[in-house]
C-alpha cells in the first residue's frame, strides 16, 4: 500500500481572482473531498499555514478557504537552492444546500486542514420500513 513512490506535485498558482495586496504568490491547495452517510469531509494541504491564519468563509453556498503563510524575516540568509515557492492558499467551492451550516467543524494538523460538513437531516439517506399488511 505504501510502496508507491510519492511524486512531486508542482504547486498551482491561482490565476487572477482579485489581486492580493501582499506580493506573495497564491496557490491552489490540493484537496480530497469524500462523502459518508452523515457528512462531507474536505482535506486541504496547506503547509506552512498556522491554525490562526486559516480563514473559512461560508457565504450563501460559496465556501471559501484562505490560508496565509507568515512572512519570512527580511534577511533570512542566502538562498543556495530552491525547489518550491512559499505563498498563500486560496480555493472556493460551491456547496449544495444539504449541509448543516451550524455544525461545520474545522481542524488543522501538520499543515492539513480538515473540514467536516455534516449533512442536514433532510439530506440523510432514510431507510423506509415496509410493513406487511
Amino acid at each position: 500500500m505504501a510502496d508507491k513512490d510519492l511524486q512531486v506535485e508542482e504547486k498551482k498558482e491561482v490565476q487572477a481572482s482579485g489581486e492580493s495586496t501582499k506580493n506573495v504568490p497564491v496557490f491552489i491547495p490540493a484537496v480530497d473531498i469524500y462523502e459518508s452517510e452523515n457528512s462531507l469531509t474536505l482535506l486541504a494541504d496547506m503547509p506552512g499555514v498556522p491554525l490562526g491564519n486559516v480563514d473559512i468563509d461560508l457565504n450563501a453556498d460559496q465556501l471559501t478557504i484562505r490560508g496565509s503563510v507568515p512572512q519570512r524575516p527580511e534577511n533570512s540568509g542566502k538562498i543556495l537552492f530552491q525547489e518550491y515557492c512559499v505563498g498563500d492558499y486560496y480555493r472556493q467551492f460551491t456547496l449544495s444546500n444539504e449541509i448543516d451550516r451550524e455544525k461545520i467543524q474545522a481542524s488543522m494538523k501538520d499543515g492539513v486542514l480538515k473540514l467536516v460538513l455534516p449533512k442536514a437531516e433532510a439530506a440523510k439517506p432514510r431507510k423506509i420500513a415496509v410493513t406487511a399488511s
Partner: peptide, 13 residues
C-alpha cells in the same frame, strides 16, 4: 465506506 468526490492529495513513500 465513503465516496470520493475529489482526490488530489498524493500519498506514498
Amino acid at each position: 465506506d465513503v465516496n470520493f468526490h475529489r482526490r488530489e492529495r498524493k500519498w506514498g513513500s
